[in-house]
Computed example of a mutant assay.
Amino acid sequence: MYYIIYAFLYLCSLLPLPVLYLLSDFFYAIVYYGIGYRKKVVMDNLAIAFPEKTIGERTRIARDFYHKFIDSFVETVKLLSASDAFFEKRFTGNWEVVDRYYDQGRSVQLILGHTFNWEWGNVQIVRKIRHTFLGVYMPISSKPLNRVFKKLRSRSGAVLLSAHHMTREFLPYRRTLYCLGLVADQSPGHLKKARWFHFFNRRTAFTVGPAKGAITNDAVVVFAAIERRRRGYYEVTFTVAEEHPKNDTDEHRLTQKFVHFLETTIRKNPDMWLWTHRRWKHEWKEGDVMGE
C-alpha cells in the first residue's frame, strides 16, 4: 500500500504548482461548501478567539483559512519532487539568527505554532543552518501514510523524533550541536502536567515541556513566525526569546512568552493558523495550576 500511495503522490507532485493550485481550488470548494470538514470546530474556535468580530468577519477568516489549509496539502505533496532551487526561491527567512549560534557552540530550541506552511519550513531550514535539525512529529495512525510523511519530512536530512518517544529518541543528540524544532500549540496530552495561561480570552492549557527542556539543556530559545507573502511564497522570521534560559528564566515565564508570541502571530494573520484542532476542548477547573 505504501508504494501505491507514494507512486500516486509522486506523480501528482510532478504537476506544475499552478496546476496543483487549480486542484486545490476544486477541493477547497468540496471541503468547505460540500463536506464542511470540521466547520463547526473552526467557527467555534473563531468565536472564542475573536468575540469582537461579526459573524461575517469570522466567516471570511474561515473561508481564507480553508483555502490555505487545502493549499498546504498540495504544497506538501510537491515536496516529493521539488528541487532545492524551488525552495530557495519560495521559502525565505532570516536564517542567520539561528545559524550564528553554531559558531558559539550553542544548541537551539526552535518553537512555533501550526502556521502554514511549516512542512516547507522543515525542509528549508535543514539547508540553511549548520546544526543537526531535529524535527518532532506526531505519528499518523495509518502506517503507509505515516511512512510517506516521514519520507517527505526527512527529504533534506532532518532527523525525525516521534512525539510519543521524544525523550528517548532525543538522548543521542543531547550533547551535539542541534536545532530542535517543536510545534507547541496543541492541547497537552497529559492535562495534569499542564499549566494554564490566558490565551485568546480563555484560560488555556499548555505543556511546559519545551520550556523545561530548553532550561535543562541551556539551549537558545528561538520563536518562529511564518507569513505567506503570496500564494506559494513564504517567509519565516526568527526571534530570540531567551539566550541563556538556564540562568535567566523559569518554565512558567518562558512558556508565557511563547503563549503571548503565538497569540500575536495568529492575530496578525488569523487565516494562517490551524483552526481545525480543538484548542479549547479542556476547561479550567478550580485547583488547576495557572502559569502566570
Rank of each mutant, 00 (worst) to 15 (best):
T265Q: 01
T132A: 09
V289C: 03
P172E: 10
D84T: 15
Q256K: 04
I266N: 02
E57I: 05
T249L: 03
Y66V: 12
S72I: 13
H164C: 02
L22H: 04
N45Y: 08
L161D: 01
E242A: 08
L180W: 10
D25M: 04
Y233W: 12
N247H: 04
W95R: 10
A85F: 10
Y137C: 09
E235R: 13
F116Q: 09
F73E: 12
E235W: 06
R90K: 15
V77A: 07
Y32F: 12
R100E: 14
L9C: 05
A85E: 12
G189D: 10
I140W: 11
K128V: 08
R38G: 00
L274R: 01
R153L: 05
G291T: 00
E263L: 03
E227T: 11
K39S: 03
W280D: 01
F91W: 08
W280T: 01
K53P: 11
Y28G: 03
L191K: 14
G291S: 05
E88R: 12
F8R: 03
I125Q: 12
G291Y: 02
D218N: 15
M1V: 07
R147K: 15
A62H: 14
K53Q: 13
T239S: 11
F149L: 15
A205D: 07
I215A: 05
R203W: 14
V208H: 09
E251H: 07
V42H: 00
H190Q: 15
F133H: 10
V183T: 13
H114E: 10
E88V: 09
K151D: 07
T265H: 01
R147T: 10
Q256S: 04
H277I: 02
F26G: 07
P144G: 09
Y3H: 05
F197K: 08
P245T: 04
L112Q: 11
I125N: 09
Y28A: 03
L171K: 15
A194H: 08
